[in-house]
Write a protein that binds this DNA or RNA. Sequence first.
DNA 1: CCGAACGATTTTGTATACAGTATGCTGAGA
DNA 2: TCTCAGCATACTGTATACAAAATCGTTCGG
Lengths: 226, 226
Amino acid sequence: MTTQPLKAALSGRVQRPVPLRETVYETLLNLIITREFPPGRHLVESELAEQLGVSRQPVREALQRLSNEAWVDLRPGYGAFVHTPTESEADQLLAVRAVLETEAARLAALSAEPAQLEHLRELWRAGVAAVSDADVDSVVTANADFHRGVIEASGNRVLAELAAQVDRRVRWYYAPIARSRGMASWDEHAGIIDAIQAGSADEAARLMNDHTERTRLTYHDQVDGG
Amino acid sequence: MTTQPLKAALSGRVQRPVPLRETVYETLLNLIITREFPPGRHLVESELAEQLGVSRQPVREALQRLSNEAWVDLRPGYGAFVHTPTESEADQLLAVRAVLETEAARLAALSAEPAQLEHLRELWRAGVAAVSDADVDSVVTANADFHRGVIEASGNRVLAELAAQVDRRVRWYYAPIARSRGMASWDEHAGIIDAIQAGSADEAARLMNDHTERTRLTYHDQVDGG
DNA sequence: CCGAACGATTTTGTATACAGTATGCTGAGA
DNA sequence: TCTCAGCATACTGTATACAAAATCGTTCGG
């Protein structure tokens, strides 16, 4: 009879059971991002624990991590609440994101490897296809993927982690009003890739900065204009 | 008889007992930063709990936060270890810090209020005095304070929080080799303040960038040169 | 009718107990 | 002497139990 360890060894790695807090964290974050848990919602440890079929402890640890990352606010002695972003906070996040992604583009131009460039091209093609198909969800995903691609191509892991977090929060804040800028956005993406490939750091940075700035203005138009 | 709430009201704020995990977190972080817990040290929950006179739970929560902020590495099923920074990681952090502080300087030039400017001048005077006294510890502290001052003057809280964290880690990494650049550094600081006061955003950004870049080179010289 | 104080309820904060897993050691066999 | 299996140990992962704090509704007094 085939033993379990053997099967695991043959199939590659033995998958270690991920700590529950991790699973809980990702589950809760997903619920928040999808707005199943809307901003302001009161999250009770014992309720969540029961719903997820675990004890309070992992839930608690997940909530604290979410609190550190500003997804929820912890009120001592009372409970956790899904964070409600203010307008100025959202604006500040946009500014920070612009800075980080601009720097990422600059670094990518200085250090991106051929494989990474090909990856970017691939992501770009997927985005263009999504726009052509007018598939809104795919466009949003493709956009996030492309930006993550650039960030990772920077070769700076610290920057990448920071930017990824900021980016995720920005997309959450602006998800309700996020509408694609359509093909124009992907033309700009193409220009950024070209600059990265050419190793033109300043040009790549400038293009990314312009790009994020236009996106910011689009957001503001939609906020102000309804 | 005077009631408790009244006394509290008279003395100003009712001081709420800070959650233990917070106290533990700060205690541990201090021990790490001061190198009483050197990089690579194995941190055992039960040991720390006993030493601090609390249960494992708050210690655990503090360790997880420290892990999220990259101060310690958590090995599942085994233990927590004080993070050992690699050279490339330190370098990447320096780069990120430069970006964040440069942007902070730019924003400060656009939005700093007179009170904040006066505060910066004050910090500057304290720094110059420390340099004159050749008081190394004071110089280091004054330097950190000045940079924090600029960051806060940016008016961007998100940026400030990020930059503060990055800054703290950078100072930890380079603490063993950190030597003051002396008065030259404070001359540059003065220039930055002037640019901020004048509202010259690009100039302030450029000066801050040059400043952090020079500091980076100093670090590298000390690393390479011994 | 309004406001403040009191009590019940809810929820977190902390401690303890138990189970699961990684590690290192010991000893036997080649 | 080297290697590997098996065991003992140490530590974390998870669950449960108890204590303290904050909130909310109610009631009493004006």
